[in-house]
């Protein structure tokens, strides 16, 4: 898998290429079959160009997401406009807005309900680090505490252009992944075991009842 290309922005002008190259090295560590790589490229092309975001937003950033869908910025140009309201059909969850302690399990559940491959973009200060509400008793300080985040988009709220930039960063990341290749997609969710344990517990409780 080579360096990912994005229309209209040269590779060098993107931020944080170091992390991307590091990921690329990890994935390509064992080498890959030519046929498989070609097939992977096709699949990755499909996936990266058909990112259907989930209709999720908790506060201010969600309004910018709406503005992004509207005529001036038009996310349909990228094929992102098919916002799904059901998590089952979405590929991407744009965490727009503060996640509070009460919302955290709900968000986690939404994420668990999504079908693989799924991605998370943390939009805005609140989801990156807690943002304006870092001192609060009821705010999750960084959504990476509960979800595996792929891209961080800082801003309060970020401009719609910054949203696109984040989405294109994600596309770049999607373009280097392996679907059929030797090394499969990195097991990126560090909270997975926790969630599975919880699920088992719930199943047990249900069976007892």
């Amino acid at each position: 898998m080579g360096k990912p290309k994005i229309k209209s922005i040269p590779y060098e002008e993107f931020k944080d290429n170091e992390t991307l190259e590091q990921m690329l090295d990890e994935l390509n560590a064992h080498g890959a079959n030519v046929v498989v790589t070609t097939a992977d490229k096709l699949i990755n092309w499909g996936r990266s160009n058909s990112v259907w975001p989930m209709n999720f937003g908790t506060s201010c950033c969600a309004i910018e997401l709406m503005a992004m869908g509207a005529a001036r910025f038009d996310m349909a140009r990228f094929g992102f406009e098919v916002t799904r309201t059901s998590p089952r059909q979405a590929d991407l969850i744009l965490v727009c807005g503060t996640i509070t302690n009460k919302m955290a399990p709900v968000l986690r559940r939404l994420y668990d309900q999504m079908a693989d491959p799924k991605y998370v973009i943390a939009i805005g200060g609140c989801t990156c680090t807690g943002g304006p509400f870092t001192k609060s008793y009821h705010v999750v300080k960084g959504v990476d505490k509960i979800l595996p985040v792929d891209v961080y988009v800082p801003g309060c709220p970020p401009r719609p252009e910054a949203f696109y930039y984040g989405m294109m960063q994600l596309q770049r990341k999607m373009k280097i992944e392996n679907f059929l290749g030797t090394v499969n997609r990195k097991e990126k969710d560090e909270h997975k075991e926790e969630a599975e344990e919880l699920q088992k517990k719930i199943i047990n409780q249900e069976q007892e009842a």
Binding site: T58, T100, F133, S136
Partner: peptide, 8 residues
């Protein structure tokens, strides 16, 4: 309520 109670 309170899913976005941020303790302002």
């Amino acid at each position: 309520l309170g899913y976005i109670h941020r303790g302002v």
